[in-house]
Design a protein around this nucleic acid. Sequence first.
DNA 1: CGGTTATTTGAAATACGTCAATTCAAGTGG
DNA 2: CCACTTGAATTGACGTATTTCAAATAACCG
Lengths: 257, 257
Amino acid sequence: MIELRPAPERLRAGLAPRSGMPEAAAVTAAVLRNLGRFATLTAEEAARVAALGATRRRWRPGALLAADSGASGAHFVVSGWACRQRVLRDGRRQIFDFIVPGEGFGFEPLPLGPQSIVALTPLETVAAHGLMDGGPASADGLWRALQAARVETCARRQDHMLRLGQLTAYERASHFLLEMQWRVGAPDPRSFPLPLTQEAMADALGLSVVHLNRVLRQLRAAGLVEIRGGVAVVRDAVALAQAAVLPLPGKAAIAGC
Amino acid sequence: MIELRPAPERLRAGLAPRSGMPEAAAVTAAVLRNLGRFATLTAEEAARVAALGATRRRWRPGALLAADSGASGAHFVVSGWACRQRVLRDGRRQIFDFIVPGEGFGFEPLPLGPQSIVALTPLETVAAHGLMDGGPASADGLWRALQAARVETCARRQDHMLRLGQLTAYERASHFLLEMQWRVGAPDPRSFPLPLTQEAMADALGLSVVHLNRVLRQLRAAGLVEIRGGVAVVRDAVALAQAAVLPLPGKAAIAGC
DNA sequence: CGGTTATTTGAAATACGTCAATTCAAGTGG
DNA sequence: CCACTTGAATTGACGTATTTCAAATAACCG
């Protein structure tokens, strides 16, 4: 049986080529798209975000973006994927959360404890300095979007705890993939970029790589979802949601810290 | 072999009798002790907290203190234990966190998500309304204490994720007991109140009751810790800490650019 | 193309869950 | 003080989910 050849760039799926736009704005397109999910921004606010493009910085996979007491300031990831994680002496690591293009980190005013933020793919960030200069009043939409994003992050953490504590491996994987589909929000609802190694997913879901691999094979065999070349293809969204047990924080479901 | 008889009140260990104090202040003693862990309060601030005693309210085990979108306001638990939890349709439940005497809930400005706060023992709360009237400046110590408590809560949640995702049952139980010892901060460092059923602990740690029971038996047999009559007795703190696999800040990340 | 890292698969070990029953402690009412 | 009840703790036997070990592809990268 002849397999279709996966796309040439495997782990670059998070890097979207944006050719037709003015350079500065193109950099922060993902950020605008993401913030737009939470609140509508005024033209002035959008311009303020676009201006951040000047501070672009590149990182390679494995780079440490921020460490423990991370007073490194607020940033947005404009392309590529990162994660928050913590590593034990014996090598076990727990990934607390992934950071996808358009999302930020370091907005918490206080140190968050012994965690570090690490690039999982080639990555680009921009600094979020001065975004809120002038206080909440001067940029209401921005402020509300950032606030809402933080709330959603909290909700996601709860979902993650529930996954780790109560769901089976099969349910965990399904639920995780659904969450990612919803977060990444690709134009085509039937597939979305997922430039993660199985090892990274396993460390997030609290499973061994081997077992995650088997579970993914099950999902593939059952015709629910298929991951190939850094892209996840959803073949049966209904069945996938059913396998995931938990409803996603799609609408009114939102959690506090 | 004759066993010592456990204390008569089994699950009441969280209810400390405070007889020698003036009534109003006695109610909130646990709150003052807890906030004192994070910042020193002025006499004026302490009085403000003590005044909350007038709003005392009682709940019985199983009572629902706050529900999903619970805009029920901020409260302190002054005696007894509660938890934040979420229950699945099929009955599985994940306990996200326990709330011990002196700790508060509902301080988040935003709606709680699909979680509820439930009493695990007979419980008393006071409302925290008006605590911060006049803004942060008027009660600096209080404000810093509450802020620090919130940060600690976040850190605890990360610890919990790490427990659920990476630690074995034995390690989970050890780590959990250590955390509780530290939080409850009893006068005698060799024992502390733990008025939780094994079912509650199991639901927090993502284990079945039966297996948790076996793990606790192992810990007892190994001479590390013993739970009896709602009180945990730490017999070998060093070995317990060792079993808990104290996690360390993430490294394993390449410093790159 | 060769070296490296990721994915995939098999077989065996084990950690953990389920089912079912027993014990134990505390409460109730006679 | 003694049946009787109820809920929690405990234990055994057994099934299953998940891990570990080991090795073989397959994909990627310079």
